[in-house]
């Protein structure tokens, strides 16, 4: 997506831009990219089953928002969820183990790629029905306020989720409850231009997606989702504001996915190789790396050491997943309900 005038863009203050945190963010984004590349390799080897939706190209949208959160904030997303788990602090090896269907996975090997969960780190899933989780997240935000906390809920979804009923029901209820300061939910539209293979122009009557959210009395803002400085800048301001107001907010991040929709999307007939190539010139990792190089003197050697670290983290994650045991057969029957019945007293 080309940048438009209304998108927030980063203004560079060298002191702020060179804070050590930005190098950490670069490390996180590189780790996510290498992790996703590894999942694609392991999928082709047959080590990962089911569906696999990777995040490559969109890293700034996860890292730019999630690094602005604090402990206690919670997050819901759809099935392209590996990056969110990693950015929230889930151990890469436990995320990889989940994809391998192992007992050491974050969801004990019972959720897989689409259902990563790590409540300890504020991650409330990983959902496989497009748009379904938006209503859950809005209710969770209500609960945070009901419990008189200043925590917020973050809900990611793609442009493709904006045409299903639960999107509209969640937005309306969030906007409604927000009037009473009872719904601190930050909606993030990961607008990567496609609902699976159907472009925004072909799936949405109105292509200004943020405008559709404004219809529900929710403030919105567009941001260049390839520029993590811009994303983080908006997030810092908005998150602070939401903790005070308890009102919902929506950020539309214009981004692009480099890989196919899922691992089976090999031919990608809905877009050209040239289009993908053109967007690779706006790789969010490249943008951040270049900026840190130009302004803060980050060297190739620095980047190399980050790359080496990420490669070894990912290799260790794959090895851990490989060596972990699959779930015991008894797991089949666990976690269906908390309290099993029948509960006759004589048994």
């Amino acid at each position: 997506m080309a940048k438009t005038k209304e998108q927030a863009s980063s203004t560079i203050d060298p002191a702020a831009a060179c804070a050590p945190e930005w190098t950490e963010i670069l490390r996180q984004m590189i780790l996510i990219r290498r992790f996703e590349e590894a999942t694609e390799r392991e999928f082709r080897k047959g080590k990962i089953g089911g569906y696999l939706h990777v995040y490559s190209g969109q890293e700034a949208v996860a890292s730019g928002i999630i690094t602005a959160l604090t402990k206690g904030d919670i997050l819901f997303t759809g099935y392209r969820d590996h990056a969110h788990a990693l950015a929230l602090g889930s151990e890469p090896r436990r995320v990889m183990a989940e994809l391998f269907g192992k007992s050491t996975g974050v969801s004990k090997g019972k959720g897989g790629s689409m259902h990563l969960f790590d409540v300890e780190h504020g991650f409330y899933g990983g959902y496989g029905i497009v748009g379904g989780h938006l209503t859950l997240a809005a209710g969770a935000a209500y609960a945070l306020r009901y419990q008189q906390t200043e925590r917020i809920a973050v809900c990611y979804f793609g442009d493709g989720a904006m045409n299903i009923g639960s999107f509209h029901e969640a937005m309306n209820m969030a906007g409604l409850w927000g009037k009473d300061g009872m719904c601190p939910i930050l909606f993030i539209i990961e607008n990567n231009g496609y609902a699976m293979g159907t472009s925004v122009e072909r799936h949405s009557a109105l292509t200004d997606l943020a405008q559709r959210v404004r219809a529900y009395n929710i403030q919105t803002e567009k941001v260049d989702g390839q520029d993590v400085f811009a994303v983080r800048g908006v997030a810092d301001r908005v998150v602070r504001q939401m903790r005070e107001t308890g009102k919902p907010y929506c950020i539309e991040a214009i981004t692009y996915r480099f890989s196919g929709h899922g691992a089976a999307d090999i031919l990608q007939p809905y877009r050209s190789k040239d289009e993908v190539e053109e967007h690779r010139h706006r790789d969010p990792i490249g943008i951040l790396r270049n900026r840190l190089g130009e302004i803060c003197g980050l060297t190739d050697a620095d980047v190399k050491s980050i790359e080496d670290w990420a490669a070894s983290e990912v290799a260790a994650a794959v090895q851990f997943a490989e060596e972990s045991a699959p779930p015991e057969a008894e797991e089949l029957w666990r976690d269906i309900v908390a309290e099993h019945g029948p509960v006759r007293e004589n048994e």
Binding site: T135, A140, S166
Partner: peptide, 15 residues
């Protein structure tokens, strides 16, 4: 869908 979905989210948070 909105009322059940939000209720499920509330329940997951302890309400």
């Amino acid at each position: 869908a909105g009322m059940v979905g939000t209720a499920v989210g509330m329940a997951m948070l302890g309400l």
